[in-house]
Design a protein around this nucleic acid. Structure first.
Lengths: 209, 209
DNA sequence: GTCTATAGACCGATAGAC
DNA sequence: GTCTATCGGTCTATAGAC
């Protein structure tokens, strides 16, 4: 990838690649939406092709299987999460950083942009674990959250009796918490109210303080 | 169905019905196990028949569709829940009753006996909502929990700022909380420890008190 | 001999793959 | 746009109870 100022030629292949990239982005966005709306099992690749407006065969030029489609959507949301983490003020208190992340995942879910996968599907698990992009993203995010969790426990803002892993999993679980959709379906609360309610039960618990 | 003391004949049809009932119980138990293990979509009715050790056609003598199989499993777990509720001491404090129920659902899940259904499947939803057994059970359980929640909020043991519905949904969500399986998969905790951890995050929250 | 319930082949539709 | 596998659901011949 060495470039000099004398080689503007590069723009032509770049244009083709750009189109390819744009279509891939459109595919992933469609997959992301459908995964959020109906989940992996209920999503068909015909739907994906129809939503993107391309032939099913073209899909397979980009992604070798349905699992890889889902994986690409997960990588995308992981990158968005990493971008969000990077956008946080570096000097925030650890508990505030953690809360900001939790709130962000819930907003994503309420906006219908959080892909949901069945946790039991083994072929899907295998695809995800074989994806370096996915695993690296997951590990980096977990490391970052893990450091904040430990810092928050050290300063006494998060319950130090909890194993950091349990805190981490509890945060991840909020990203696919069915309580959000149930409360939304009840029609009694605004999105903002729903998020505040779940934030409260998550961080303050059900018991009165 | 008029019977007199002169008609001991009645034991014969009763025996037949008993066998029929026993097989139905076996079917539902198998469905329950498979639903807990792999979920509704991944479960095939061939598997169910194989697990019970009967022919698939015989399954359809008892239950007209796969959805009805799942519904029967849900009714079963609902009845177990009702039996558990009935077994609780009537004089317990509301918060303790609620905690006992939460703990019970988690134990069921860790034991691999909590059937899990996709919340988006519409034909399944329709079957469940058309089942009087299911709906009545669900409503009775919700009513009971609802009364305890309001009592606990009145006496100040559960955060009175939370809408009772939000508390109810939060409790229901613990019955299918993925945190349990994740913590179990980590191999670092016993079942009892996992339950205490999730009970703590649920009722006391992540923040230190 | 009749009748019920079973076993297992079979069908049609759907969806993933190419 | 075709191929094939899978799966929900059905059909039929048969075995066994009475």
């Amino acid at each position: 990838m060495t470039e000099t100022a004398l080689a503007p030629v590069r723009t032509k292949p770049s244009f083709k690649a750009q189109m390819l990239q744009a279509r891939e982005d459109a595919i992933i966005a469609a997959v992301n939406r459908l995964l959020a709306e109906k989940g992996f099992d209920a999503m068909t690749v015909d739907e994906v092709a129809a939503e993107v407006g391309i032939a099913k065969a073209s899909l397979y030029k980009h992604f070798p299987s349905k699992e890889d489609l889902a994986c690409a959507a997960m990588v995308r949301v992981m990158r968005r999460a990493q971008a969000f983490l990077a956008s946080l003020p570096a000097d925030g208190r650890p508990l505030e950083q953690i809360k900001a992340v939790a709130r962000w995942t819930m907003e994503l879910q309420l906006a219908g942009e959080m892909p949901s996968l069945p946790s039991q599907n083994s072929s899907l698990r295998a695809t995800l674990m074989n994806s370096a992009d996915y695993m690296n993203g997951l590990i980096e995010i977990s490391d970052r959250l893990g450091r904040w969790i430990e810092a928050a426990q050290s300063e006494g803002s998060i319950n130090p009796a909890l194993p950091p892993l349990a805190v981490l999993y509890t945060l991840y679980a909020r990203a696919c918490d069915p309580v959000l959709e149930f409360l939304k379906a009840s029609g009694q609360f605004s999105d903002a109210q729903i998020i505040e309610l779940v934030m409260s039960t998550c961080f303050e618990g059900l018991e009165a303080r």
